[in-house]
């Protein structure tokens, strides 16, 4: 084998490098550079709006881990994830199983309807939902009262006890269409022979699902869970437009906390970009850690 020298190989592939360049520049500017800079900013005492910035080492981190609002938001983000992902996975699966039936004539229509919220701007959904769940004659309360399910209107978004479940419900509604599409893709990979053979063997009902179909779609389930879990940690637009973290911070997840400390000055506090970056880095590392854990789990399961 005549192996070409490295410089010759690079020269021969010169067009390849030209072709990757535009995308690489964009990714470098807007993804890779910002990651590096957020580490650096996190070491500064800096408002973000003036040139004055003082290097203070790890002091921002120290302050963050000692702030109870930080930990409340941190834990709330995970409550959000554990509260929504299983619901979406199970509900999405059930719907997909029904709509995967060729015989169901209206299946394409139902798929379209269930997918509709997915294509709707998330900020708009947040705003519209503040109307829908309004305690002052909002449609949700109107419906509950006209069917006598409640006697007095529920202040869904104004009560610290109901606000998070309500936002989680809206989140599930908004994105369930995607979960359903994932499951439909997974179900389509089950070979027809498997169904036919199972039918001949007389496997029916839950036995068919548990012993035959579930093992086939399991590798998909793991990818779906991974994608969904990371997605459920990125809920800024929905919560910002529905509640902005309120009332009394009771729906403040990590991203809202970062945004609030970085930019919002309504509450009279000074914007602190350096501190917000420290919180963001801490958060980013936590998310990465979970992603890696899940990735490892995925690999192990796939090998078996």
């Amino acid at each position: 084998m005549n192996k070409k020298s490295l410089s010759k190989q690079i020269y021969d592939a010169r067009w390849c490098y030209v072709f990757v360049l535009p995308c690489l520049i964009l990714t470098g500017m807007f993804v890779i550079y910002p990651i590096g800079m957020s580490w650096y900013f996190s070491l500064l005492d800096w408002s973000g709006f003036t040139k004055e910035a003082k290097f203070i080492g790890l002091q921002n981190y120290y302050e963050a881990v000692n702030d109870e609002f930080f930990w409340d938001a941190f834990i709330r983000s995970f409550i959000f994830m554990f509260g929504t992902v299983p619901v979406k996975i199970v509900l999405g699966f059930i719907i997909a199983v029904f709509l995967n039936n060729q015989v169901l004539k209206l299946a394409p229509f139902f798929r379209t309807v269930i997918f509709m919220p997915v294509v709707t701007a998330i900020a708009i959904i947040g705003i519209v939902m503040t109307f829908v769940f309004s305690p002052f004659n909002g449609p949700a309360n109107k419906f509950l009262m006209s069917t006598n399910l409640t006697s007095a209107p529920i202040d869904f978004l104004g009560n610290p006890d109901t606000v998070l479940p309500t936002v989680m419900g809206v989140y599930v509604w908004k994105w369930l269409g995607i979960t359903m599409m994932y499951w439909l893709a997974a179900l389509q990979t089950v070979p027809q022979d498997v169904y036919d053979a199972a039918k001949i063997d007389g496997a029916e009902g839950y036995r068919l699902w548990i012993h035959i179909i579930l093992p086939i779609v399991l590798p998909f389930a793991i990818v779906i869970i991974l994608v969904e879990a990371v997605g459920a940690l990125n809920v800024f637009p929905l919560i910002e437009t529905m509640t902005a973290g309120g009332p009394f911070f009771s729906s403040e997840v990590m991203e809202i906390y970062i945004f609030r400390t970085a930019f919002v000055t309504d509450s009279g506090t000074m914007p602190r970009l350096g501190y917000a970056c420290a919180a963001g880095v801490f958060w980013g590392v936590a998310v990465l850690f979970i992603t890696v854990l899940q990735g490892l789990w995925m690999r192990r399961t796939r090998r078996i």
């Binding site: 021969d12 592939a13 490098y17 993804v31 990651i35």
Partner: peptide, 26 residues
């Protein structure tokens, strides 16, 4: 071509970077 694997590696590592993480430096 030389460096292809590194390029792919860089890209894959950015898959799960949340937008909130990069917004301030952007």
């Amino acid at each position: 071509f030389p460096g292809k694997k590194i390029l792919i590696g860089i890209l894959i590592s950015t898959i799960f970077i949340p937008q909130g993480y990069t917004i301030i430096p952007v």
